[in-house]
C-alpha cells in the first residue's frame, strides 16, 4: 500500500466528561474511496471536524501529505487541497448555484478574490456544472432548491477547489433512492476514471452505498476504532455486526 495521503494517529476528543473520540487511527489512501462508518454518536462527524480543523483534538496527531497539520487553520488545510461537504447543509443561500461554485473556486486560488485567472475559473465551474448535471439549475438561487440538488451543489463546490482529499459527510441523507443511486454513480465516476480524481473519505449512514463504493472502510463505535479493512472483511467482522445489531447476532 502506498504512503497514505492522510494519517490520523490516536486522535482523542473530549467534551467535558464525554469522550467523543478515543485514540482513533485513520488512514486515507491517495486514491480511491475510504469509508468511515459507525452507529449514531460513534464520533464520525467529530473526526471530520478534527481533520478539517473545525475541532481541535485533545490529543493525537494528524498528518496530511507528510505535514503535521494540527496547528493549521481550516482555510490553510483547504488551500492544501482538503475540501468537504456538510451533513447539515451549508449553502451560500443568497447566491445562484453557479456563483456558489465560482466563489468556491475563487476561495481556493491565491488572488482569486481579486479576479486572477478568472477565465480558467469559469471553465472549471462550467465543466463541473455539466459533469454534475447542474446546468439547468445554474442560475437558480441556492436557497430555494430541494435538498437533493443542494447535496450536488455542495459536492460541486468542493470539486471546484480541485481537491486532493474530498471529505463527504453523509452526502445521501435527505436523498431518495433514485437520487442516491445517481449520486453513487457520480461519486465513482468522479474519483476513479483517469486516476487523477481526489481521494475521498466518505461518512455515510447508508451502509449499502458504503459497501458498494469504498475500497477501505474504518468502523467507529463509541469513539473507538473497532475495525478497518476492505468491505468484504469488515462486513463479516463480528465486532462490526455486534456494534450494529447487538451481541447475539454475532
Amino acid at each position: 500500500m502506498p504512503e497514505p495521503l492522510l494519517r490520523a494517529n490516536a486522535v482523542t476528543v473530549t467534551f467535558g466528561g464525554l469522550i467523543a473520540l478515543s485514540e482513533v487511527d485513520l488512514e486515507v489512501a491517495p486514491t480511491g474511496i475510504t469509508g468511515l462508518i459507525g452507529p449514531n454518536g460513534a464520533g464520525k462527524t467529530t473526526m471530520f471536524n478534527v481533520i478539517t480543523g473545525l475541532q481541535r483534538p485533545t490529543g493525537g496527531t494528524v498528518h496530511y501529505d507528510g505535514h503535521d497539520i494540527r496547528r493549521w487553520a481550516p482555510q490553510r488545510r483547504a488551500r492544501a487541497g482538503m475540501s468537504r461537504t456538510f451533513q447539515r447543509l451549508e449553502m451560500f443561500v443568497g447566491m445562484s448555484v453557479r456563483d456558489n461554485l465560482r466563489s468556491a473556486w475563487e476561495a481556493s486560488v491565491p488572488g482569486g478574490v481579486f479576479g486572477r485567472q478568472a477565465a480558467a475559473g469559469r471553465e472549471t465551474v462550467e465543466e463541473i456544472l455539466s459533469r454534475l448535471q447542474l446546468h439547468s439549475f445554474a442560475d437558480r438561487r441556492a436557497g430555494e432548491l430541494p435538498t437533493g440538488i443542494c447535496r450536488m451543489v455542495e459536492l460541486g463546490r468542493a470539486l471546484c477547489t480541485r481537491p486532493r482529499l474530498l471529505l463527504l459527510d453523509e452526502p445521501s441523507s435527505g436523498l431518495d433512492a433514485g437520487e442516491t443511486a445517481r449520486f453513487q454513480d457520480l461519486l465513482v465516476e468522479t474519483t476513479s476514471g483517469d486516476g487523477l480524481g481526489p481521494a475521498v473519505l466518505l461518512v455515510e449512514h447508508d451502509v449499502r452505498l458504503v459497501m458498494d463504493v469504498c475500497q477501505q472502510i474504518t468502523v467507529l463505535d463509541f469513539g473507538r476504532r473497532i475495525a478497518a479493512g476492505p468491505p468484504a472483511e469488515v462486513r463479516k467482522d463480528p465486532a462490526v455486526i455486534a456494534a450494529y445489531l447487538g451481541e447475539s447476532a454475532a
Binding site: D176, A177, L245, A249
Partner: peptide
C-alpha cells in the same frame, strides 16, 4: 436504540423506519 439486540430484548412491539 442503536443496539438492535438490546431494543428487541426490551420491546413488546417494534416499528422499523426507513427514510
Amino acid at each position: 436504540e442503536q443496539y438492535v439486540d438490546a431494543a428487541l430484548a426490551l420491546a413488546d412491539y417494534c416499528y422499523v423506519l426507513e427514510k
